[in-house]
Design a protein around this nucleic acid. Structure first.
Lengths: 84, 84
DNA sequence: TTAATATTTAGATATTTATCTAAATAACTA
DNA sequence: TAGTTATTTAGATAAATATCTAAATATTAA
């Protein structure tokens, strides 16, 4: 849970997640959407991957990222138990 | 949303939230549950209050804290839209 | 094989954050 | 009113984090 909350505690990473909700994208396409250097975006993607919120797959010279929503079940349940 | 994710991005604060789920507690009672100084707990409570996750009410010399779950609706909806 | 493109790794830096102790504020009690 | 208790504020510090540039790695194409 720690890595999940950490991953979501950043506006850029939440926006990346929202982008990947629409469609899979490679690292370059993602970084084009932000005024942040590629290495920084790569780092954000790494944190999202550590939280298992995204998966990555090498496709030739590109690396395609996909959203993994199954991990959100845990978060959803945690919140729901708070609301009793 | 930023303050909400920030508030939840800390194990101590998540535990405070879980304590307050059971019953309202004053600052001293909360701090007894942790091996962390009272000022630090006070600071955590402040961050939870900024996120509107808890409310506080002065009762004599004590300050009683309560969980506010209504704010979790936003979070819940954000997560649910990701899951389409 | 060499050049170009895509991505990540390494190293540096400025900011944020969690924590502490000491001091201030507020409220009760003798 | 003076002392005690509850809580917060102030100021300091060490650790974590977001960002950058430069370099390394991997893949495709000429």
């Amino acid at each position: 849970m720690n890595s999940l909350f950490k991953a979501l505690n950043d506006e850029t990473r939440r926006q990346i997640v929202e982008l990947l909700k629409e469609k899979d994208m490679n690292a370059g396409e993602i970084s084009e959407r932000f005024n942040i250097s590629k290495p920084s975006i790569s780092h954000h993607l790494d944190i999202l991957r550590q939280a298992d919120l995204v998966t990555s797959e090498k496709k030739g010279q590109f690396v395609e990222y996909s959203l993994n929503t199954t991990i959100l079940e845990d978060l959803l349940n945690w919140i729901l138990t708070l609301k009793k």
